[in-house]
């Protein structure tokens, strides 16, 4: 899928979401992907069109209702870069 903007979200928009944002930037660099904007915010900012791809931890997945399931990555372990890379590749290379 064509991804220009990725939004990481958590309950307060400055803890786990920021950590995920950093990990995404590292993984994108490793994958050689450029030109993707990565932002962090609260789950209340997650709306269709706010980004092309949304990344959340599993505890918050149920709070994201109006976005297409294909546009969401749910992480079991927020600090696991291996899981993140696998799931990002599956989306970006699809």
């Amino acid at each position: 899928m064509q991804v220009r903007k990725i939004m990481c979200a958590c309950g307060s928009g400055l803890g786990s979401s920021l950590m995920v944002e950093m990990n995404i930037q590292d993984v994108l660099k490793k994958m050689g992907v450029e030109g993707v904007e990565v932002v962090h915010s609260t789950t209340s900012d997650v709306h269709p069109g706010a980004a092309d791809l949304f990344v959340v931890g599993r505890d918050l997945a149920d709070f994201i209702k109006d976005v297409d399931k294909d546009e969401i990555i749910v992480l079991q372990n927020i600090v696991d870069k291996g899981e993140l890379e696998e799931k990002l590749r599956a989306k970006l290379e699809a």
Binding site: G11, S12, L14, G15, S16, G57, D59, N77, V79
Partner: peptide, 25 residues
């Protein structure tokens, strides 16, 4: 109260919680 509303999203991996709320809290 955030944890009661959203679940313990700050447990970011086994054995570790990054406790936090919003600046305005």
């Amino acid at each position: 109260s955030n944890a009661k509303e959203f679940g313990p999203y700050f447990v970011i991996c086994p054995d570790l919680a990054l406790l936090h709320a919003r600046p305005d809290q």
